[in-house]
Amino acid sequence: MNDMVKMVVVLTVLSSVAGGVLAAVNKGTASQIEAQQLKFVKGPAINAILDGASNDPIKDRIQIADGAVERSFFVGKFDGKANTIAFEEFGKGFGGDIGVMVGVNIDSDKLVGAAVTVHTETPGLGAKAKDDPSLVSQFKGLPVTDSLTVTKDGGQINAISGATITSRAVCVAVTKAMNTYQKMKPQIQEEIQKVGK
């Protein structure tokens, strides 16, 4: 019986100490990790979408509360006017969530571009969505009121061959982003004025 108690006590103590340490490390590195992700994952995608912006979109980001979550919008200035934003949305892909960075022009309400940020798709098939521009380039110039689906589902986007599920997920993410944009446009316009100055 004594042995039993000892096992339970040791395992419990060990697990809770490990949990505590991990929580502490997680908290300590969280901001650093976010900065790294911004630099290496979202950074290239943002820069690709807001190519030619006169400011640093990663620095000029605005935070707006959307219900319980806080969203980051990256603001790009073109011709001295802060009129373009980029933000991230997610769709369910073949191997997990796919993050898509979507850029929208506030004045014309049209997409300026999209780029895949994070994914866990199959290399050689779904993973092409990140490197192969043929899929994401189709979003450029579309009005935000459209609902996007792949051609197989009767839509207008040509899927990457062999990666219909991934392409579908990217479409879902972009559609979600457009809905978010339409819903939050007033707040965005309000906040963006501060950056414009």
């Binding site: 395992l11 490990a18 991990l22 490390v25 650093q32 990790i33 790294q36 992700q37 630099k39």
Partner: peptide, 22 residues
């Protein structure tokens, strides 16, 4: 017990690598 200890260290390494050598 070994697995708990090892897993804790691995998670620490993973977080540290994410933070400094992304």
């Amino acid at each position: 017990c070994f697995i708990i200890i090892i897993a804790a260290f691995v998670t620490i390494v993973e977080l540290l690598m994410q933070a400094y050598t992304y």
